[in-house]
Amino acid sequence: MKLCITGGGTGGHLMIAEALVAEAVSRGHEAIFIGSTKGQDRKYFEFNSQFSHVYFLQTTGVVNQKGLGKLKALWKVFLAFLKARALLKKHKVQAVYSVGGFSAAPASFASLSRFTPLFIHEQNAVTGRLNALLKPYAKSFISAYEDDSKIKGYPIKEIFYKSAHKRQNLKTIIFLGGSHGAKAINDLALSVALELDSRGIAIIHQAGEADYERVRDEYEKLGLRIELYGFTKELPELITKADLAVSRAGASTLWELTANGCPAFYIPYPYAAGDHQYHNAKFIVDNEMGWCEREGEQLKSKFLDILESDLEQKSTKLLSYSSKDVAEKMIKDVEESIK
């Protein structure tokens, strides 16, 4: 089978693409990637990927543009659509898998124009505008949040499943400020650090490169030595060591924590498109698998309340909900659909 995987912009989308190409190649298929010159697409796949060919077309987001900017963005999408259509023909692509994001638009519309089956994975609880537009025309629409999704889940690296375990006692907390540094999470960590130390609870903190020096200096003023990082590729190992996480609610991190059985206190990024991070976290809260609080004055008191909660109950529910082999199921679905 010859497959095209398209989409990206952010790590949440691209990690799904990464999982899908690995599974497709392991099953003897060939896959190409069509993304954008904008966003993180090149960072992920320009070098050392499992794709046979990678293409980065000149597109930008349309939704966040206004007036003339929106028209220019649409024109770029149209020109990229023509290029994507030619690429699908050149590589004799039999199916297109969209992982969402603005860079998915050209190849997704090209697939429909060529009557090539289109498959979609939606990473967030709030369906993106492009995915909502394309959903009626897709062979399969996969979501971890929708009851009618034929496959429920989010493709996660195997390491999170292999190291998954039930949390029972609170010995270590990890604060995930992200690669850039979420100030609300970093400030919360600093405000409770002495309290955690007095309780004998260890702190792991990824503060983000942009906020690393400030956070480091503040810990030094408190007289605390903690496991502090700006950016690290060792997050799977660090999450495994933790009994509780404090994090934004981007889809990839949320499902990594879920797969590993690590309960989390989610503080959604308030400016996420469609407020999707809040709705991602709300899904976890509604299923009694974690906690969520918006940025504000209640963060510290809510966090301290969580320290007295039953971690084992939440961890057990996370482990029972998490679905393995999602990427394998998604590729098998494509195989069966195009026979």
Rank of each mutant, 00 (worst) to 15 (best):
11 G>Y: 09
236 P>Q: 03
202 A>H: 15
159 I>P: 03
198 S>F: 03
204 I>V: 15
158 E>Y: 05
153 G>D: 06
94 Q>P: 06
312 E>N: 10
287 N>H: 14
140 S>Q: 14
170 L>N: 01
244 L>R: 04
297 E>S: 15
188 L>C: 13
288 E>G: 06
181 G>T: 08
125 A>L: 11
294 R>M: 10
310 D>H: 15
135 K>M: 12
171 K>I: 01
15 M>K: 07
34 I>T: 01
293 E>S: 14
82 L>E: 07
289 M>N: 06
142 I>C: 08
178 G>M: 09
56 F>L: 07
4 C>D: 02
274 G>W: 01
265 F>M: 06
339 K>P: 11
232 T>N: 11
44 Y>G: 09
198 S>G: 13
12 G>N: 08
225 R>V: 10
152 K>F: 07
16 I>N: 04
179 S>L: 11
36 S>F: 04
199 R>P: 09
262 C>Y: 00
37 T>L: 14
61 G>A: 06
129 R>E: 05
274 G>H: 06
207 A>S: 15
150 K>C: 15
141 F>W: 12
75 W>E: 04
99 V>G: 10
75 W>R: 05
192 V>I: 15
48 N>F: 06
310 D>M: 14
65 Q>T: 02
143 S>P: 14
84 A>V: 08
190 L>T: 13
230 G>Q: 04
65 Q>W: 00
21 V>W: 04
57 L>N: 02
254 L>M: 13
31 A>I: 11
164 A>T: 12
63 V>I: 12
67 G>E: 01
74 L>G: 08
164 A>M: 10
38 K>E: 13
60 T>M: 01
136 P>M: 03
1 M>F: 05
277 Q>E: 11
222 L>W: 05
220 E>A: 14
89 K>Y: 03
95 A>Q: 08
327 A>K: 08
5 I>W: 02
168 Q>T: 15
47 F>E: 13
331 I>G: 09
131 N>L: 06
201 I>L: 09
82 L>Q: 13
170 L>I: 02
282 K>H: 04
128 G>C: 07
272 A>Q: 12
54 V>N: 01
12 G>W: 02
179 S>C: 12
138 A>Q: 11
249 A>C: 10
10 T>P: 07
38 K>D: 05
10 T>G: 04
71 L>M: 09
291 W>I: 05
181 G>V: 11
69 G>N: 06
270 P>W: 10
114 R>P: 04
135 K>G: 11
335 E>G: 06
190 L>K: 10
202 A>G: 11
90 K>G: 07
149 S>L: 13
20 L>E: 10
305 D>N: 15
180 H>Y: 14
263 P>E: 00
118 L>P: 15
93 V>Y: 05
202 A>D: 14
106 P>A: 00
91 H>E: 13
12 G>I: 04
337 S>H: 09
134 L>V: 03
62 V>T: 11
163 S>V: 00
222 L>V: 08
56 F>I: 03
234 E>W: 02
19 A>I: 04
131 N>Y: 01
271 Y>V: 05
138 A>W: 00
7 G>R: 00
81 F>Q: 01
